[in-house]
């Protein structure tokens, strides 16, 4: 769905099939999506890409996505975690970050992403 005002979401997810699902859910709701499946790719996109929001898987196989989260925080880009371990599996430094437990309903993802957006607007 081409949309001139579409917001761009960075999705970091290391499982191919899950990445496809997240991308489809967001694209179907009118977002532009950039996907990173490996830590290095996630880090460089978090540093350089023009994104408004991000959805981060926590466990990336080669490590976790906390370094990506730190960059996003520094840049003031709101993000949420989507993880199979749920909020309890998060390191204490990230306890306040919105978290979705996998698997989730597509509507839950969209709702949380929209909330990120609202909080971002108020922050400005």
């Amino acid at each position: 769905m081409p949309n001139a005002r579409a917001q761009r979401v960075l999705v970091v997810e290391d499982e191919s099939l899950v990445a496809m699902l997240v991308e489809d859910i967001l694209v179907d709701s009118g977002y532009d999506v950039i996907v990173a499946m490996r830590l290095e790719a996630g880090l460089s996109l978090a540093r350089e890409a023009d994104v408004h929001l991000a959805v981060l898987d926590v466990n990336l196989g080669e490590g976790n996505s906390y370094p990506i989260a730190d960059i996003l925080r520094e840049r003031g880009i709101p993000f949420l975690f989507a993880t199979g371990y749920g909020a309890l599996g998060l390191s204490s430094a990230y306890q306040g970050i919105p978290t979705l437990q996998k698997p989730y309903h597509p509507d839950q993802l969209i709702k949380q992403v929209m909330q990120l957006n609202t909080s971002a607007l108020f922050a400005h």
Partner: peptide, 16 residues
């Protein structure tokens, strides 16, 4: 479709 996307894009990205 699915197969092509999985192989060309996701698999390629997941494992470089």
């Amino acid at each position: 479709g699915f197969g092509s996307r999985l192989i060309r894009r996701q698999f390629a990205m997941e494992f470089n």
